[in-house]
Design a protein around this nucleic acid. Structure first.
Lengths: 222, 222
DNA sequence: CTATATTGTTACCCATGAGTAACTTAAACT
DNA sequence: AGTTTAAGTTACTCATGGGTAACAATATAG
């Protein structure tokens, strides 16, 4: 479906395993370990940001969660904002991955939209993604800010295209794809702020209700 | 429809006008003037918060916008957080006022929901309300936090009731009113983050699209 | 026209928290 | 071995910004 953090999709081949069997502890190359730790830091940070908010969370807080001291973090991140940027990269990959999957088959627009919604509700559960959704917009470095906006527009554009395709192929009724895409995103992103997997509301019911309102609307016809 | 800030709905009677005509400058009582200034400060603060965010906006920034110095603000507000609390009070009054209006007549649930949506899209344009929507959740004083949650739940509950009523009277199709209410709010609140009155998208089109998706859904039936 | 509350100012305090420098420990690689 | 590089630590600096004290001006009332 998506992919994981940096570049550790499969563990790096270990071409030296034949040479000598003295590598029992390493097992993971240093680069891989580094990526794993970065991922852990990101998760800790994201969890803290979701609980207390970006500004009320200090780097010391994050370091404490990770059981290291603050300066150590700087070995993995450039600065505080860089955490958000790295979360965004993860989010971008996951969401675009979903969109790739959804648009791969040549279903009609409605079917694709349905698949996207189902997948997105899944994605929106992840702490790193929730963190990104909540804090996208905090970027203060102008360049990072611009990059963030661009990636956001790109994703919105792809959903808009799905809707537009649906209108064209007749599977969706005539509507303004731009506005509908934005409204849909607002509702779906909102979910990330309140939905708890541990709660009594299960995934299926949630997805069903989203699909109900999006596809049929709530007005009774008879 | 709603009402304005503190308690200045009509200018306070001026029962002393007969006594002597030496009151030409005052015209507004001191209490009224104070409320007017508080309102202005709130608007300046809200505008700044919407542009730069709560934490990136200093009290000096707000003071500068209002053309006074920081300590002066403390004559009108208790502290920085108090600004958010006061914005919330305004928002609460406006939204509950709308709900009062909407539920006053005994239309069916669908008609009431429609009216609410139309009114809410209007409300969500105001800077103070936008500010509240964006920053509800930042409250750090536990008491204020609790009060905020309570008022939020109350409003959500009233909308849920409208939907429940609609399901009961048959004007809305069977659905989970709790989830639908939340999704609806997410979408509507989202509007406050991107919609600009000066933009090329006019109110009517926006409302029409929201109603389209909420009432009919986007799936084509034929 | 003075007395008094209301607004506002200048000049400060001080907690917080991001980021850095310099040093120590642990691991890896011939 | 023993040297290099990665990983982490303690102990700082330093800007920012919320909040306050003490003082100055202005208006309202008697």
């Amino acid at each position: 479906m998506g992919n994981n953090i940096g570049g550790i999709n499969r563990i790096g081949k270990t071409h030296n395993m034949i040479k000598k069997v003295k590598l029992l502890k390493p097992a993971l190359g240093r680069e891989e370990k580094r990526q794993l730790k970065l991922d852990a830091i990101l998760r800790h940070a994201a969890a803290a940001f979701m609980e207390k908010g970006y500004y009320k969370t200090s780097l010391d807080d994050i370091a404490r969660l990770h059981k290291v001291t603050k300066p150590t973090l700087y070995y993995y991140i450039r600065n505080k904002e860089d955490i958000l940027i790295k979360c965004e990269a993860v989010a971008s990959q996951r969401i675009n991955g979903l969109l790739d999957d959804v648009t791969a088959l040549d279903d009609n627009g409605f079917a694709q939209l349905k698949k996207f919604i189902e997948g997105y509700v899944e994605i929106v559960t992840d702490d790193i993604i929730r963190c990104h959704i909540r804090h996208r917009g905090q970027r203060e470095d102008p360049a990072a800010r611009e990059a963030s906006l661009k990636m956001h527009r790109e994703i919105e554009h792809r959903v808009r295209e799905i809707i537009g395709r649906g209108v064209a192929d007749g599977s969706l009724r005539p509507c303004n794809p731009t506005i509908i895409a934005i409204l849909l995103f607002d509702a779906l992103n909102g979910i990330s702020a309140w939905y708890r997997e541990e709660g009594d509301l299960n995934h299926e019911e949630l997805v069903a209700q989203v699909l109900l309102i999006v596809t049929e609307g709530v007005k009774n016809k008879e």
